[in-house]
Amino acid sequence: MGKLYDMLKKDVRYQEALKACINCGTCSAICPAASFYCYDPLEIMEIVQSQNETQLEELLKSDKIWYCGECLSCSTRCPRGNTPGLLIMALRKLSQDTGLFVESEKGRQQLALKRAIGDNIVRTGYCIYIDTMKPERHPESGPVYEWIYNNRDEVMKRMGANYKGDGPGPMRNIPQETLDEIKKIFDLSGGTELFENIEKYSEQKAKEMGLQFDETTDCEYFNEIFTKTTKKHTL
């Protein structure tokens, strides 16, 4: 065993996910991602079981570990109680800890997710928040969402929400002391470190790719990873 495998083994989800795979392929048969992307969860299970350090490093650098949608349908169907989706989550964490995620197009998208979802949690207490979900980034949300977004003060009030209000209720302002506690939890539990790693490795990659990089969601690198597909990923 090598260094990467040792790191992977420490993740409790690896221990939960991979017990006694019999390579039957049921996970691949049930997987929605395998019916859309060039993706085969059984292949991931086999590489990890091989404990081959070179193959594992290649896997962590590849797009393959980023195709799963984490629906966890594989968990229900595996006849031996394995969960390839959970193993994928452990691999993704390792890929980010080691900086290898920036070597693949799908892996590089983690910066967009960190800035869109991760930062929201610490700044607002919500994973998603209407103020940051602009209709131009979500044309699929349709004209009704555009109307909601443009009139969100009124619409939220009409719905009985406590939008930006104090006290309990949907869409309330989450108090600053709560956000301070969340930030401290992130600092002490590795959440802030993961955020910083994603930013650091992404900035290095942007430089290597010759793309302008800053802290906004409108820099060249962000737009590249958020909107573009430069190779064929699908079946």
Binding site: D11, M89, R92, Q110, I117, I174, S189, G190, G191
Partner: peptide, 23 residues
């Protein structure tokens, strides 16, 4: 009113570690 997001969407977008989500 002091409860928050459980961080689950961040966890399943793989930008929040499991240790953080547990806390």
């Amino acid at each position: 009113e002091h409860h928050s997001s459980c961080s689950g969407i961040g966890y399943h977008s793989d930008v929040v570690p499991f240790t953080t989500t547990q806390a």
